[in-house]
Simulated assay, not measured.
Amino acid sequence: MMMMSRVLLAFFAFFSSLWLALGSPIPQSEVELNKRTTHSGRGTWYHAGHGNCGGWNTDSDLVVAMSKGFYDQNGGSNCDQYVKITSNGKTAYGLMVDSCPGCGEGDLVLLLSLSIDMSPSMFEKFASLDTGVISIKWSFKPKGWKP
């Protein structure tokens, strides 16, 4: 009798564990987790124009471009999403509107080191255009967020 109750308890424990494991949330993809990560990388500048996200921008717009690899990996789902950028003790917000073929393609393997390209007016929030390249930290703001 004691042996039978132990066997039943073992079966109950096994199936309860199995049921809990199957009912657990599915882990989010690396792209979803990457959206909430603070990235480190290089910040450069480019002349804005027709962006990969479909719109037109000028050099005076506070816009940024993500690496082409990251854009392709997430299917452009970060288009028109703001990013918070910090460099040289300053913080500013830019709208993701484009992709950049030369921005951190190799950095994508690390997932924490992604470079972005900024419009001239965005870059000048941190340094003069003559500087060319700056070290930055950046992260996505929630979809729909505006500064």
Rank of each mutant, 00 (worst) to 15 (best):
G23M: 11
M4A: 09
G51H: 02
P147F: 11
G43K: 05
Y82G: 07
E105I: 15
V109S: 15
L9V: 05
G76T: 02
S121M: 00
S77R: 10
D117Q: 05
D59Q: 10
Q73A: 15
Q81F: 01
K84L: 09
L108D: 03
S87I: 03
P142V: 14
A21I: 00
T44L: 04
Q73E: 15
V64L: 15
D107Q: 14
H47K: 13
C79F: 11
R6F: 03
F11A: 02
L18S: 06
G41C: 05
E32F: 13
N34C: 09
S113R: 15
L8P: 02
K143E: 15
V7I: 15
S16T: 14
F12A: 00
V133Y: 09
K35W: 04
Y46H: 01
G89L: 00
K90G: 05
G51T: 11
S99G: 09
A65K: 11
S121I: 12
K146N: 12
A127D: 08
F11W: 04
L18K: 06
S40R: 15
L110Q: 14
F123P: 01
M3Y: 09
E124S: 10
F123V: 06
P27H: 07
S99I: 00
G89H: 02
N74E: 14
Y82R: 08
V64C: 14
L33Y: 10
N88G: 10
V64E: 14
C53M: 14
C79I: 10
L112H: 11
V7A: 09
K84D: 08
L114V: 04
N57G: 00
K35Q: 03
T86H: 02
C103D: 08
D130F: 04
L20G: 02
A10L: 03
T131R: 10
D107E: 07
E105M: 14
D98M: 01
G55F: 07
F15P: 04
I116H: 01
L9A: 10
S87N: 02
G23W: 02
G106Y: 01
T44D: 07
V133S: 06
L20Y: 02
W45R: 04
D117H: 01
V133R: 12
L18C: 03
M66D: 05
M3W: 05
T91N: 11
T131S: 08
M2Q: 04
A127P: 03
S139Y: 03
D117S: 03
G132W: 02
S119I: 02
W56I: 06
P120L: 02
K143H: 13
K141N: 07
S87V: 00
C53D: 13
S24V: 08
S5L: 06
S87P: 02
L110V: 09
S115K: 09
C103P: 05
A48G: 05
A21S: 00
L18A: 07
G89S: 04
D72S: 08
G41M: 13
L110S: 14
L22P: 00
K68R: 13
V109P: 09
K35N: 06
G54T: 13
A21L: 08
D72L: 12
C79P: 06
C103Y: 07
L111W: 12
H39D: 08
W19P: 00
I116V: 15
D80T: 04
L110I: 05
L62W: 08
C100H: 07
F12G: 03
V97E: 13
I85F: 07
F70E: 12
L108W: 08
W56D: 03
A21F: 00
F14C: 07
